[in-house]
């Protein structure tokens, strides 16, 4: 009974902190005020500097975790809504996303392997370029650590959002479709909100790239990991 109440309390605090950080983000939008970054940071500091254990936090957190799989299914709806845009640039979109996805997986796996990291780290970084729920599903199937995967995904998102616009400018990538595909394939939803600042088409293409690349990467990661 006490466990249930602890769980409910943690659940309420999580929702409360998230709601506050959403307000903060609306006022001061930048990659380090993202609600996922601030809210997770809040609880990491809270648990890190108190006697509260992650296990006790998860008494509430486990209810939230139940939604991770179904949220992947939800991504079909925004993808469906963009069907016209996908059809318009179909070939270009798929080749561009495919190229980036392979590069991301190979450089992630190979460099971690070369630095001598253990297999479970390699399995956790392989899907870092895709949106969190899908990366978690892929990592779970691959045998990696979900918390590490979530951190790597966040890092890919934040760094891509911060430096993506600079990279496309330096490489003189000027077409909104090309910019959107690059940023969406590398940095999923966090990158997409930045791509939207570059332009409406950038943002739309980034959003569809994030979903298509998620599907592509979920097929490719098991293949590349089996080569290890």
């Amino acid at each position: 009974m006490i466990n249930i109440w602890n769980g409910v309390i943690f659940l309420i605090i999580t929702i409360a902190v998230y709601t506050v950080t959403k307000r903060i983000y609306r006022k001061y939008s930048n990659p380090f005020t993202l609600p996922i970054f601030l809210t997770s940071g809040f609880f990491i500091i809270l648990l890190g500097f108190s006697d509260l254990s992650y296990q006790s936090y998860m008494l509430g957190g486990q209810w939230i975790d139940l939604f991770l799989g179904p949220i992947v299914v939800a991504l079909a709806l925004p993808l469906y809504r963009q069907l016209d845009l996908i059809k318009k640039y179909a070939r270009t979109i798929f080749i561009g996303i495919f190229a980036g996805s392979i590069i991301g997986i190979v450089t992630g796996i190979a460099s971690a392997k070369m630095l001598g990291f253990e297999d479970w780290i390699i399995q956790s970084v392989a899907a870092k370029s895709v949106t969190t729920p899908v990366a978690l599903s892929i990592t779970d199937t691959a045998g990696g650590n979900l918390s590490f995967a979530a951190v790597f995904v966040m890092l890919a998102g934040i760094s891509g959002a911060m430096f993506g616009p600079v990279i496309v400018r330096l490489l003189r990538i000027q077409h909104p479709v090309a910019r959107g595909i690059g940023i969406g394939t590398a940095s999923h939803a966090i990158g997409t909100s930045k791509a939207l600042e570059l332009g409406e088409l950038d943002g739309a293409v980034s959003a569809l790239s994030m979903t298509i690349s998620a599907v592509v990467v979920s097929f490719l990661v098991p293949l590349f990991l089996s080569l290890l």
């Binding site: 957190g61 918390s147 979530a150």
Partner: peptide
């Protein structure tokens, strides 16, 4: 994003 909080906190 709220659904990613518990696993990230892990």
């Amino acid at each position: 994003p709220i659904f990613f909080v518990p696993v990230t906190v892990g």
